[in-house]
Design a protein around this nucleic acid. Structure first.
Length: 441
DNA sequence: TCTGGGGTCCTAGGACCC
DNA sequence: TCTGGGGTCCTAGGACCC
């Protein structure tokens, strides 16, 4: 951009304030479960992490009972009985499908949508200034509820961080009708003063502790802190957050999903594993899942790593010491071939496996990913057909897509051993399986 | 007894190059 | 005998997010 053009743009006196909305599904997993079991409408609900380990979602009733996010299930057993809390294993097939319905609904309100996570989207409302954004948000909210049955909250601000803040506030206070537009409030400073520093997007435990020590306790104080000082004492990320609170956009909307940089597949086991054989099966399974994901995105991996670990919560460090290790290797040429990647993974496992430990968790990571279309061959290796041209991988993916994940698999994955995770309270896949549809009498 | 999984970005420091 | 300085790439680790 030439200097003249820059001058011209920056001198436009009444530049339109940007408007970004953050739409967030309320207690998303709990809301999904409730949708198909309306008899639970006033009962507390919690949804568990993989392996039924800890609580990752709570309905408002469960929150009101003081059930904390991330609490291990066994610690709240009494409360669950006492208050008849409904408990579900996580059902990602169901949540993923309902998420897509919500996002599709939102896309009818503006074409510029960044799906930020399974239950959140940023919407660019530029060009909607002639609307009353408060009302527009309320219509959005009503429509999503009517079309999908999922309640959402909406926050609007001139940057992503302010939109996040608005969303946080809209949930806290019922007077906003689930929609809060910070662009329209009279005293933004007072509003930001009411937001605790740890509730600002991008400020986690560590940083909020350090900020408190520096005397910065609220969003307003972070907004007014010296940018260079923040950059020096923390890093540019925090400096950007401060700028965003000032209304200076530093984090752009990303409508196009960038290519993945890594794909991880890992799990805690249903039972502890000591032998190498079930570990081999589990890792083969993890590689299969990751490789399928890789092919779905038309990527190939150049780097693979394997990790295994015992429980960090072991009671006796002498008989049951904590052990974790990982090993990785660089492939001579990028691959998306499940069989080839399994071979590498199992070789890496040999290098780090130590007998005598009770392993709790293992996983693999594929990284250094490049699009298949841009692959570079190995000058000295025989030409191997991969991905799109590989009929075996194609057939594998096609069959598994039609008949269900895991229908066709590598023998090294075995047939379901102890390593498989516990999911004792999973609801049906109401919206994606014919044989699990809800029945109306 | 029982404590998730999958991502991103940034920085510091070492190896290496010219 | 005297032995620089600037740059890039890679990796590990730390912080964050949902």
């Amino acid at each position: 951009m030439s200097f003249g053009v820059w001058l011209l743009m920056s001198s436009i006196p009444f530049e339109q304030q940007r408007a970004i909305a953050l739409v967030d599904c309320n207690n998303f997993y709990a809301s999904c479960e409730r949708l198909f079991q309306p008899q639970l409408s006033n009962r507390p609900i919690v949804v568990l992490s993989n392996n039924d380990g800890c609580i990752v979602a709570r309905s408002n009733e469960a929150k009101a009972l003081g059930i904390g996010m991330g609490t291990p299930l066994f610690k709240v057993k009494d409360e669950i009985k006492k208050y008849r809390i409904a408990v579900f294993s996580s059902n990602y097939t169901l949540y993923g499908d309902l998420s897509k319905r919500v996002m599709d609904t939102l896309k009818t309100f503006t074409p510029n949508v960044e799906v930020y996570s399974i239950d959140e989207s940023f919407l660019d409302l530029a060009g909607f200034e002639h609307h009353n954004l408060q009302q527009y948000g309320e219509v959005m909210r009503k429509t999503v509820m009517q079309w999908t049955g999922i309640p959402v909250s909406i926050g609007i601000g001139s940057t992503k961080t302010l939109a996040k803040t608005a969303n946080h506030l809209s949930k806290k206070s019922p007077t906003h009708n689930g929609v809060l537009n910070l662009n329209a409030v009279h005293d933004l400073t007072a509003v930001l003063e009411s937001v605790a520093i740890q509730d600002v997007w991008g400020i986690g435990r560590r940083w909020s502790d350090r900020l408190h020590q520096m005397g910065i306790h609220t969003a307003r104080q972070l907004r007014d802190a010296d940018t260079n000082d923040l950059k020096k004492r923390f890093n540019v990320i925090l400096a950007r957050t401060s700028q965003e609170l000032r209304g200076i956009p530093c984090i752009e909307l990303e409508e196009e999903q960038p290519d993945r940089q890594q794909i991880i597949s890992s799990r805690s086991f249903g039972e502890r594993i000591e032998q190498i054989h079930p570990l081999q099966q589990a890792l083969s399974h993890f590689v299969s899942r990751a490789a399928a994901k890789l092919r779905k995105q038309h990527l190939q991996a150049r780097h693979i790593s394997v990790f295994i670990q015992t429980s960090p919560h072991s009671k006796d460090p002498v008989t049951d010491p904590y052990y974790k290790n990982s090993q990785s290797t660089r492939l001579s040429t990028p691959s998306d071939n499940t069989g080839e990647l399994i071979q590498h993974a199992l070789q890496l496992l040999e290098q780090i496996y130590q007998p005598g430990h009770r392993y709790l968790r293992a996983g693999i990571m594929l990284s250094d990913l490049t699009p298949y279309a841009q692959r570079q061959g190995d000058l000295f290796a025989p030409v191997v057909q991969k991905s799109d041209n590989n009929p075996l991988m194609q057939a594998l993916d096609n069959i598994n897509q039609k008949m269900g994940v895991g229908t066709l698999r590598y023998a090294s994955e075995g047939f379901g051993g102890h390593w498989q995770m516990r999911q004792s309270r999973k609801s049906p896949r109401y919206t994606t399986r014919w044989d699990e549809l809800a029945v109306v009498r």
